[in-house]
Computed example of a mutant assay.
Amino acid sequence: MDPTTEDTQPDALEVISEFTVFIPPSIHHESLISGASYAHYTPIPPLITTSKDDAPGTECVLGVDEAGRGPVIGPMVYGAFYLPVELHRSLLAETHHFDDSKVLTPAVRARLMKDVCTAGTDLHNACGWAVKSLSARDIGAGMLKNGGSYNLNAQAMDATIEIIRKVIDSGVHVTEVYIDTIGNPGVYQKKLQRIFPTMKITVEKKADSLYPCVSAASVVAKVTRDVSCDVLYQEVMKNTPEASAEEATWGSGYPSDARCVAWLKNQMDSLFGWGNECRFSWGTIKDMIEIKGSAGVKVDWPVEDDEDNACLSDYFLNTNAGSKAASEADQLRLWFGSNVGQEAF
Rank of each mutant, 00 (worst) to 15 (best):
S149K: 14
Y150W: 10
S90M: 08
G120F: 11
L32R: 00
L264Q: 05
A126K: 08
G171V: 07
A126Q: 11
I161P: 01
K286W: 02
R137A: 13
C229E: 00
K206E: 12
D306C: 06
L112D: 01
L87Y: 02
K190G: 05
T4R: 14
G183F: 02
D269L: 02
A154V: 15
N184C: 01
I289P: 09
A136W: 00
L210V: 01
V297I: 13
T58V: 06
L317I: 03
K206A: 15
L312F: 14
F272Y: 12
M199D: 10
Q9E: 12
D7T: 00
F196A: 06
L112S: 04
H173V: 07
M237E: 15
D115C: 04
A325P: 14
D306Q: 12
A119R: 13
C260A: 10
I163Y: 06
P71M: 00
L317N: 02
P212M: 02
G251Y: 10
S215Q: 00
R194Y: 10
V220T: 11
G283C: 03
G253Q: 01
R333S: 12
A207F: 10
S215M: 01
W301S: 12
P24E: 08
M199W: 07
F98L: 11
Y233Q: 12
P106I: 10
C278E: 01
I164D: 09
D269T: 07
I33N: 09
R259D: 02
Y254E: 08
S327R: 08
P45S: 09
G273T: 10
N153R: 07
F19Y: 02
D257G: 08
P46K: 12
D100H: 07
L332M: 11
V220M: 03
A243G: 04
Y82A: 05
Y41P: 04
P43F: 04
Y254S: 07
I164Y: 00
L91F: 00
P56N: 11
S294E: 04
Q331M: 14
M268E: 07
Q267M: 15
H97Q: 15
I179F: 04
N339C: 02
I179D: 00
Y233M: 07
W263I: 05
T249L: 04
I291N: 13
A217S: 12
K298Y: 08
G275Q: 10
T160W: 06
I285L: 11
S133V: 15
I201G: 01
V220G: 07
D169S: 12
A321Y: 12
V219F: 01
A329T: 13
M143P: 06
Y211A: 02
D11I: 12
W274V: 04
A216N: 01
D100K: 03
I195W: 09
E14H: 13
S133L: 14
A321K: 14
F196H: 05
N125T: 04
T160N: 15
T50R: 14
K102I: 10
I285G: 00
F316A: 13
R194L: 14
D308K: 14
V340R: 11
Y254K: 03
P197T: 11
K222Y: 04
F19M: 05
K102C: 05
F345V: 09
P43C: 03
S281C: 15
Y254I: 07
G35D: 00
D300V: 13
R109T: 01
T319D: 09
R333K: 15
V231F: 12
T202S: 13
I291M: 13
Y38V: 08
K191E: 14
I168V: 15
D308F: 12
V172D: 09
L210F: 09
T121V: 05
A310L: 14
L152A: 03
